[in-house]
Design a protein around this nucleic acid. Sequence first.
DNA 1: CAGTAACG
DNA 2: CATA
Length: 206
Amino acid sequence: MTKRPSFPDGFQVLPEYFNREQQSALVTQLRDILVKAPLFQPVMPKTGKAFSVRMSNCGPLGWVSDIKGYRYQPLHPTTGEAWPDMPNILLELWKDVAPDAPAPEACLINFYQTTAKMGLHQDKDEDMFEAPVISVSLGDTATFRVGNTTRGGPTSSLRLTSGDVVVLAGESRLAYHGIDRVLPGTSTLLKNGGRINLTLRRVTSD
DNA sequence: CAGTAACG
DNA sequence: CATA
């Protein structure tokens, strides 16, 4: 019997969870957020190599990466201001998908121009892993890769289109995942193309 | 460390 | 494509 690599347990895609109208409303709110909390260019710890994605955050905590390491912090790294509030539609998404989890504290905003990629990684900078990671895709379609909780195993690839929601719960909470490629011209949501990914996370265990 | 490139 |  042939067995194709399967997705890790707890991994779920909710195709087009947000309709076009909701996606547009979200983009409008994100524009305001990005005025107050501009996209910044993260770099890898130790090496200082630049990420190809640009980032910002909303919510009480934001994920940042610089020469010193990965961490969550309450202030924007260049403006020194608090991160803007998380849009209500995202809090509602969290309550819908993870009704038993404590409220999300961080919403990482990753902006991918068409050449940007994100290597395989785990989301493991949080103090607790019981709550799922929930992510929203907006704009151009991307090729998403997901593996298991250890490096080196089989991986599967999947296209994420605008409005899709991905849930990393249970075993898949610590699954390796990344973005291989953004497919140019596959959505009209963002005027200048590219892709936005929102990642909602519970950070603290309080 | 969520980076890339060279290599088997 | 998996590994360093």
